[in-house]
């Protein structure tokens, strides 16, 4: 079991880092939303593994489905905001989104 655990954790960590890196470096709003999704996937992976190792796959599955639903709603809202920003500014560049500063 140990190597499986290690593999899972390494995989989750890699996805997490990838997502975080994308978060920091992207200056496109849609990319940012995708990055958030990627990070959520890492979390889901951990939950899957948790369910598996506990034996309580049912609880774990319910958790994951709830998470996906919430995540979708968040993504929709984020995209909606991005569209509204696009309508206002003409592009999706995050660097232009700095009117609120100081």
């Amino acid at each position: 079991m140990n190597s499986l655990t290690t593999a899972f954790f390494i995989a989750a960590a890699m996805i997490l880092f990838a997502g975080c890196y994308m978060l920091v470096r992207s200056h496109n709003m849609i990319r940012l939303v995708i990055a958030v999704e990627v990070v959520m996937k890492a979390v889901t992976l951990v939950l899957v593994f948790a369910g598996y190792s506990n034996g309580n796959t049912a609880l774990s599955q319910s958790f994951i489905i709830t998470i996906i639903v919430a995540e979708v709603v968040v993504a929709v809202v984020a995209t909606g905001i991005a569209i509204a920003v696009y309508r206002n500014n003409g592009d999706l560049d995050l660097r232009k989104l700095n009117k609120l500063n100081g």
Partner: peptide
């Protein structure tokens, strides 16, 4: 501090991490 926080989201995320 005022100059440091220039409103860029990436910068905020950098601080977070």
């Amino acid at each position: 501090f005022h100059d440091f926080s220039d409103g860029s989201t990436n910068r905020y995320l950098v601080w977070t991490f």
